[in-house]
């Protein structure tokens, strides 16, 4: 099981967290076309390499985090609170 370095709690097992999926900007609701909006909702990239994804420390501090993870090695490059610039 991978471990996630929570900035508040330290290194914790991934099963304390819930994945909230790929972190990507919400389209502008005033101008978004159905194609753009639905790509935001349903099209998720799954690259081999570094991804930026959300993890929620549900069984811990209940903070939403942004984590950089390598999908092949599961190496975690960084973990920071959501909404805070990297």
């Amino acid at each position: 099981m991978i471990q996630i370095p929570c900035p508040y709690c330290g290194l914790r097992n991934a099963n304390e967290f819930a994945s909230t999926g790929e972190v990507k900007p919400r389209p502008d609701v005033a101008t978004a076309t159905p194609a753009v909006w639905r790509a935001y909702l349903y099209d998720h990239r799954n690259p081999e390499g570094l991804v930026t994804e959300g993890w929620y420390h549900r069984a811990g501090c209940r903070k939403f985090l942004v984590v950089e993870r390598h999908t092949q090695t599961n190496e975690i490059r960084s973990a920071r609170p959501a909404g805070v610039a990297s």
């Binding site: 919400r26 929620y56 209940r62 903070k63 939403f64 609170p81 959501a82 909404g83 805070v84």
Partner: peptide, 12 residues
């Protein structure tokens, strides 16, 4: 969790 999510992300 939904409320917290908004407050911690877009609604920070």
């Amino acid at each position: 969790e939904w409320v917290e999510r908004w407050l911690q992300t877009a609604g920070r």
